Simulated assay, not measured.
Amino acid sequence: MRSAVPLPVPGRIEVHQGHAPLIVAFPHTGTDLVDCADGFVSPWLARRDADWHIQDLYAFARDVGATTIRTPISRSVIDVNRDPSGASLYPGQATTELCPTTTFDGDPLYVGAGPDADEIARRRATWFDPYHAALAAEIERLKAIHGHVILFDAHSIRSRIPRLFDGKLPQFNIGTNGGTTCSPKLTAAVAAACGSDSIVDGRFRGGWTTRHYGQPERGVHAIQMELAMRGYMIEPDMPDESNWPPPMLDHPPIAPTLRAVLNACLDFRQ
């Protein structure tokens, strides 16, 4: 059965162990700027692009036996869903780096050039590596029990960010890196649960986590869900320090769909 409290994992990673063959990962909900806070132009700006409230939106995951993994460290310090080599996940398209130097909108995060190679290496060893060590350990733990595991990488983003995509993002953005990271039957089941306001491998095709761990031939099925934030909060037209982040709605309209999505993940392997 799952633990009642977070396990003491190095790097301050929060792990709740479940018994089902399902892991729900939260790589971008953290807002802790740790010892890097003084280097940012603005602490608010450094936290603005967090996946706000996502761990609360998926709080029910533990009730269905899922394991959850979360880092409290802000993605502006180091993005645990980027390729540690520094290679872009979306060549030719706007994106952010392993240690981002700009926000999603292109605003500079640092007064100068940002962290150098030594500082990036320090941040990777301190916060990136422990997160992935914990994630890999949970994958192997559950795979040893069940013979298979589903890794569900949970994300969200503002519905409109012109620098990253045109127009309004679909509500549910499913990423499988072109069908390579999980069984097509799992993709179909998740897409069916999401309904018409969804897309598979659109602007977001899965980050490094999905692409790195997704090995369906080994029984490890990885899938990313990028939610448009309008499904669980009221998004202002222009986020600023007076209105961002908004609170999560008391009854998010997408909550029943997310329950159906995780149930589809569990039903797929049963």
Rank of each mutant, 00 (worst) to 15 (best):
R12S: 11
H16P: 01
Q17T: 15
L22S: 12
V24Q: 06
A25H: 13
P27R: 06
P27T: 04
A37T: 08
D38Q: 15
F40A: 00
F40P: 00
W44E: 11
A50C: 08
D51N: 09
Q55L: 05
D56Q: 15
D56S: 12
A59G: 05
T71P: 03
P72G: 06
I73D: 08
V80R: 08
F104E: 04
Y110M: 04
V111E: 09
G112D: 15
D116K: 07
D118W: 02
R123T: 13
R124Q: 14
A125M: 04
I139S: 06
R141Q: 06
K143C: 10
A144T: 08
L151I: 13
D153R: 12
S156C: 07
R158P: 01
R158G: 00
F165Y: 15
K168E: 14
N173P: 03
I174S: 07
T181C: 13
P184W: 01
P184Y: 08
V190C: 10
V190P: 11
A193D: 03
S196R: 07
V200H: 05
T209M: 04
T210R: 04
Q215I: 01
R218G: 06
G219E: 03
H221E: 06
A222Y: 14
G231P: 09
M238G: 06
D240S: 10
D240N: 14
E241Q: 14
N243W: 02
M248W: 09
L249K: 04
I254W: 06
A260T: 04
F268I: 04
F268W: 15
Q270E: 09
